[in-house]
């Protein structure tokens, strides 16, 4: 076996069998490749990386299946169904399918595919799930009102110097720091 091959297996071993530590790629390197990916997405498809748009498309498709009449008459989603094309056959939905595949791939390589609840140790599971659903609802409303989420609105917006992206940045992270003080007990154990 060549020396190079040996080196590679050793590298894999480090990730695969070292169960005690979570190993992540260098954040700056990850960010750099993420930046290149934004450029690729804009170059080929003219789309920014996004998530909430795909969520909305799925929600629209569900409503179209369940109550087609209501969906077509709704002034928010009706226009999206006007063309007659399936709302699921969009770039964003396929991108999200890809995201699922990519995440599983990475987690498999780095040995992170476990069923578990992620939370701060002091928080009970029940509370964590309750907070997760509340947070989700807020995101659902916020993304539709603000026209996008952290990736589609802020990241892709900042990439093209759009004012909207920077307002989103101030909104999400600026207010995030304020809310962080209010909800500190969710993440940090306080001695009471």
């Amino acid at each position: 076996m060549s020396k190079k091959r040996k080196k590679r297996t050793k590298w894999l071993k480090n990730f695969k069998f070292n169960k005690r530590s979570n190993r992540y790629i260098n954040p700056y390197v990850g960010g750099f490749f993420l930046g290149l990916l934004i450029i690729v997405a804009l170059y080929f498809s003219g789309e920014g990386l996004g998530s909430s748009g795909g969520y909305r498309d799925v929600a629209v498709a569900v409503l179209d299946k369940v109550t087609p009449e209501y969906a077509h008459n709704n002034s928010y989603i009706g226009p999206r169904l006007a063309s007659g094309e399936s709302p699921l056959k969009t770039w964003l939905v396929f991108e999200l399918i890809g995201v699922i595949m990519g995440a599983i791939l990475s987690a498999a390589i780095f040995n992170r595919l476990h069923l578990r609840i992620g939370k701060a140790p002091h928080l009970t599971d029940k509370k964590r799930l309750l907070f997760a659903v509340i947070g989700g609802i807020l995101w659902g409303i916020g993304t539709q009102l603000g026209r996008g989420c952290t990736s589609g609105l802020v990241l892709s917006g900042m990439a093209v110097n759009s004012l909207s992206g920077y307002i989103g940045l101030i909104g999400i992270f600026g207010f995030g720091f304020i809310f962080a003080i209010i909800f500190k007990s969710i993440w940090i154990k306080t001695n009471k």
Partner: peptide, 9 residues
């Protein structure tokens, strides 16, 4: 010219 559906929202 051509509307792209827009990353998000």
């Amino acid at each position: 010219k051509k509307e792209v559906s827009g990353g998000c929202g």
